[in-house]
Amino acid sequence: MSTVAESRRGIALPALGHDLTRASGIGLGLAMTWFSLLVLIPLAAVMVTASTTGWSGFWSVVTNDQTAAAIRLTVTAAAGVTLFNVVTGTAIAWVLVRDRFPGKWLLEVVIDVPFALPTIVAGLVLVSLYGVDSPLGLHWANTSMSVWLAFAFVTLPFVVRMVQPVLDELEADVEEAAASLGASRFTVFRRIVLPSLVPAIAAGAALSFARAMGEYGSLVLLSGNLPFESEVTSVRILSAIENDNRAGAAAIASLLLLISLLVIVALDIIQRRVARRG
């Protein structure tokens, strides 16, 4: 095989060894170039633009009354919904793995809907049940409840989908041994099942928190974006962009980016700990 042809086709060539062949080196170069142009350089631009105003500029932007209120609401709702997901997500995963009833496959499909449904459509569907014409009589649109509702919708699958495979792999014999020695079902769950689920739950919670912190699309039609009431951080960034205040937008955005980075690091640590144990 000619090396010229190989290098031209480089990007998709699999290398079998552990060291980089010339072809996969070229592939790596191309992939990294695209990744930098698309993701790394733009995200760096956010950080650099935020730093142009200095620490005092940054501080005055994020402590502006309206912005601080938006950040407080976003953090509170994201943390609250994440805690809620830890409980409900584990319960849902438990039902999907351990329970059997007709129509269960439908639940499997429903769980994935928030992943694939466009966020603007998610907002619209929530308005139809919890908005002005609510068949339930719940008028949550344009209140801070709408933020909790939208976060709960878009983050639903994270904990479920992390916990489900782990629960599926658990061996039954330890649980059976505990039960035969007289442990109640609750004790078995708390002492035997739960400890092995903790890393998966933590990973799901981290993803869920990060997703909620940056959520925008599902809130546009639902929350009304009322300052001090239902306005979230992303909306503040967007209004800064629309007012051509790029430094201000970048300052708030860099705060969100920092949280995303922390989540990524937390996930990496959790996954490494699990890999070492397994």
Binding site: V39, L43, G214, S234, I241
Partner: peptide, 12 residues
Amino acid sequence: LPLSVSPIVVGL
């Protein structure tokens, strides 16, 4: 990273 970055931040 792109999964946990806000879409508005991506646009910005």
